[in-house]
Amino acid sequence: MLLPAFSYERPAELPGALALLQRLAAAGVSYRVHAGGTDLVPELKRDEAAIGTVVSISRLEALRGVRARPDGGLEVGALTRLSALAEEVRERFPVISDTALQIASPQIRNRATLGGNLLVDNRCVYFNQSPDHRDVHAGCFKAGGEVCHLVPSAKRGAQPLCRARFVSDLAPVLILHDAKVVLARAGAERELLLKDLYAPDGIQRTQVAPGELLTRVLIPASATRRVHYLKLRIRQALDFPSLGVAVSLDGKKLGVALTGVNTHPVVLAYEGALDATLKQACEDGPKRVAPLAQDFFSPAYRRQMIPVLIRRAVAVLSKKDTP
């Protein structure tokens, strides 16, 4: 599949990159950031995005690598490749490492970056298709058209307009670690809790503003919190999560974050005796998601599996408790 024509910039350092993004944003040029390109390149090949400029940040070495923070946590550059991430956080955050290794394939993990994974495009069976195929069903909202094939009642102005599903595997796990992201733009930076990065729409899916770049992910240390992630998919390689369930236990706190079943990660937090919180989480989980027929598994099945996986993750964590 041929890539469409675009112009290409590959700045050598961060300030230059931010300045360039600011210029493009100000001039109203449609641009896309290219990190590892494993999500962006297929998207461009399928003409999913009209694009003027590709801004590759792959030379910004400053954004690569994992550093320890004084508080014992980690600061991970957005450009850190998933294979490197898995290696470098294995000791401190084995669950992040394991989760990274469940993404896509070894070759993809050698290019794919943490930032790209957190910002991976939402997916839908009507959208992630060749342009020819999108024409068969008439282009939907996400493709610039005037219809949603999954929610035919949706009208422009509806919120959310598009219900393409959120699929990042790492996001739910990092959210339960209370991770923050650093968004930089020319001359300024802001920090955001990762869970606040996302918007509830399949098109306008994040808070990243024009001109902004995700530069770092901050993972605070915690002596007591443990997190486990279970990924539901028919094949144990390649496949995106049909449903991903991250669960954290921290004293009396139970946290749950779900991926693959809504337009954004769904986060649940409870405090109290585990029996009760667990029961509540299992009841709430299926209600808080909105899976659609966009995946190998039916919406009903993915809903049904939420409590199963929550329980299993808790069981794993509880087992780890009593060595």
């Binding site: 290409y8 590959r10 390149v41 297929p42 399928r46 896509a104 290019r111």
Partner: peptide
Amino acid sequence: DVGDCGCCTVLLDGAPVLSCLVLALEAD
């Protein structure tokens, strides 16, 4: 040509990657 099959693997600076997803300019 879209990253699904793996057949286009090459070693880039020693590591296997999918050459169909790597812009040639990225490999400079």
